[in-house]
Nucleic acid binder design. Structure first.
Lengths: 208, 208
DNA sequence: TAGATTGTTAATCGATTAACAATC
DNA sequence: TAGATTGTTAATCGATTAACAATC
């Protein structure tokens, strides 16, 4: 009897979390209303209250929400209190940048393995992590207890990489390759094809 | 009397474009049905026909769509036939990766300028493009006829960079900084905070 | 002609917005 | 008490799905 949460709501939760974290850490703000949170994100207060109501009652009537408490609650809903271990497959420019991305750590994500098939870079290090041969996929994924496979290989190789990651035991996939991947319904996948957003921007700039 | 197109539709158009381009270039496929296109993207054929109907009639009843023709039509709708000039502000790991990103060129985007405030890297080149001082923002943006400003600086500096980019004349913003930017309603902005997608993945992996 | 497939209208579904009682 | 603000129900809006006539 698990309630279905809309994807729209799920996609807003990280925005709430991000804003609450900033308010707590940079401003030391104690209490925030849905009105103020909405102002900071350009989301209506009703929408925010509706989203939160999906998961329980987090505020106090007439007062608002405790910033840190709400941040922690949302963090728990998103699973950010767990510690997720990532492996990046394809250590090109983008894969290398992700291996160095500093915004992951505070959210509970850490890159623990890098894989590539290019013999010239295997054995070298990026951000202190050694690049392993993609042929050693299964042992690297298992040995490092990797939860999430990050795909930053060319589109033509992405499906093959996804299949091998899943066979090796990853529980989720973060795909940057510009192609639709087929994965079992039990494996969550998030697509991050960067040219989609850029094309949408082009569209909006084209409409006078 | 400009028709309002839903964001959901706009976000699917690049997927159609991507799939049609692959079908045309890699497979030399001539004709495709909404059924087949839907299968390749996990989108219902009705949805695809509905999306396309928003912009006109592109197919032939009983036959399907001409792959190249539909690709070109969608490309025109998205504005991909124009040539967009990008400037990347913040040449860290992510900015540097974007300066090297090979998937932009075929869509009509090219990186023409790089800006940073770090004196140690100003003057050096990335992918053949010289890094300019962020203080020279206005002249670099204007001199290079930059259309789109790409923001890859830390969140704390992003609003300031956005203001300066707009003052310098960019017509759109592609923002990778994890913060909500305030921009005039005439300036389209697309946000690409990478931790949003990763957090959504965490959510789905947390719900057994 | 029979089969396939589009374009479009109607029906349904789901998400957002409005309203307001509860209560701090 | 009066003012503020949540949580929740009802109303509206918009997007998706279903159905089918048109036609290749």
């Amino acid at each position: 009897m698990k309630k279905i949460i809309s994807q729209a709501t799920i996609d807003r939760l990280p925005l709430y979390f991000r804003t609450l974290r900033l308010a707590a850490e940079s401003e030391d703000l104690q209490i925030i209303s849905s009105e103020e949170l909405g102002r900071r994100l350009d989301i209506t207060p009703e929408q925010i209250r509706k989203d939160l109501a999906t998961f329980g009652q987090f505020g106090r009537k007439g007062i608002g929400y405790d910033v840190r408490e709400l941040k922690d609650k949302i963090g728990n809903i998103l699973g950010l209190h767990k510690h997720w271990r990532l492996a990046i497959v394809g250590v090109g420019h983008l894969g290398g940048a992700l291996a160095n991305y500093v915004n992951f750590a505070p959210l509970g994500f850490s890159v623990v393995a890098l894989l590539d098939k290019n013999a010239e870079i295997i054995g070298s290090e990026v951000n202190g992590i050694k690049i392993d041969s993609a042929r050693r996929m299964k042992s690297v994924i298992r040995g490092n207890k990797v939860d999430i496979g990050v795909i930053t290989v060319p589109a033509s190789e992405a499906q093959n990489v996804a299949d091998k990651l899943i066979a090796a035991g990853v529980k989720g996939i973060w795909n940057f390759a510009p192609i639709k991947l087929s994965v079992p319904p039990t494996i969550p996948i998030v697509n991050e094809d960067l040219s989609i957003g850029l094309s949408a921007l082009s569209y909006h700039m084209t409409q006078d």
